[in-house]
Design a protein around this nucleic acid. Structure first.
Lengths: 228, 228
DNA sequence: ATGTGTTAGTGTATATATTACACTATGCCA
DNA sequence: TGGCATAGTGTAATATATACACTAACACAT
């Protein structure tokens, strides 16, 4: 079966830069390509948009198929439409980025056949197609966005300590933050709900908090800002 | 002649929200549709992406063909990919927005056959397809972006007075700004070059300034912020 | 049980940025 | 030459951001 059109059409794909955090490092999930072109190189997970699904759905479906990840924070990033992005034929790609909570190997094991692996963003292998550019665009967006929108929480477990949160911000922004100032600011947003639970650790145990999503939505409606 | 593919492909279009300013109002340029669907309704200029042109080139080409505008500030906005955006067939559209300096009727006269007209953003007619959503997305982006990036200059003549610039910000942001504070802030950016020319008016003539693009690029490299 | 090491948790003083606010200057025109 | 409309200017009050160091609690080793 084949489908014909009066004029040639670019193929349409979605690609998804998946971010995670582990031991204070910011990671991206990459897929090893099993086929030419760029066989053996690493690439961002992605694939063709079906004609009967929205592009957002396509991004989620490809993510699930290639990495087993579901229920992640997903946001459209940018559309890459240079003529020679793909050596085979004209392909336009709508890029997304995803934030995932648990960076563990089991989670990406559901992958069908494809190898998936986490890489620290500062130790990336060379990437297929224009995926280096896509990844850098995603990284820039994440760094910019984390300053004025509380998306960082999507990278942490639902219950977390303030130190974990601060380390996350330091990891993403790439610089140290003063502990007292950070706590003042982050608590002033009123987006954190202190719990009566404490993290058990090798030392003094820290209070756990959770992100108060309903409070966030309420404050967004009031036009409140959340710059950190 | 026809082109066939193993799987059906969404059609790919670009649409372009064109902003201008006139007499203290923010305007958008719309095209009256001559054909079904939505015949007679107003729409954002746009059209199909050719297989041998980049999506940015496609946006510029369609803008030129439908409105005669060239050499405008153009930036990708968002990609709209819901399944039923277009009642005829699956169409994914990469939306752009453009900022133009002179809002005059001659400029859009080059249009081939299509009627083009400027509408104030607060008095829009009903629009074809999902163009209302695209337009509101563009408006939100413009309002957000003007606060931290000096794109407002793209809507003014190359030489302008501080009062013109202030009115532009007031128009886009939708609220009044204190004159002295505005001047302090905008001059502190060092992005404005005072000229030895003065605008002739009915009253005291005002000094003209121009946007110093090279200075801007220098400061961007240094990571300077330009919040207003 | 006591000491040591490690992380949690807290407040204040200073510097910087933002806001609020009103008058004089200049040029056109009647 | 007087009136009117717009251009242009500074300062004080308030709010926000930054810099900075010690005590508290717990685990573990002795």
């Amino acid at each position: 079966m084949s489908f014909s059109y009066r004029y040639p059409r670019p193929a349409l794909t979605v690609d998804c830069v998946v971010f995670g955090v582990h031991e204070g490092r910011l990671l991206v999930l990459l897929i090893r390509r099993g086929q030419a072109p760029f066989r053996g190189d690493w690439a961002i997970p992605g694939g063709f948009v079906d004609v009967q699904e929205s592009i957002d759905d396509a991004a989620r479906r490809e993510l699930q198929e290639e990495t087993g990840l579901t229920n992640v924070y997903l946001e459209q990033l940018y559309t890459f439409g240079a003529v020679n992005r793909d050596p085979r034929e004209r392909v336009v790609s709508v890029a997304y980025y995803a934030l995932v909570r648990r960076v563990e190997h089991q989670e990406v094991a559901a992958s069908d056949a494809a190898q998936a692996e986490w890489f620290p963003v500062d130790e990336l292998p060379s990437l297929a197609f224009d995926h280096e550019e896509i990844l850098q665009t995603a990284l820039a967006r994440l760094r910019a966005k984390v300053r004025y929108q509380p998306i960082g929480f999507e990278l942490l477990p639902t219950k977390f300590t303030l130190t974990q949160l601060q380390q996350l911000y330091e990891t993403i922004l790439g610089h140290e933050i003063d502990k007292r100032n950070f706590r003042k600011k982050i608590l002033a947003t009123r987006l954190l709900k202190p719990l009566e639970e404490f993290a058990s650790g090798r030392h003094r145990s820290a209070r756990l908090y959770r992100f108060d999503r309903s409070q966030y939505q309420k404050l967004v409606k009031q036009g409140v800002n959340f710059e950190i």
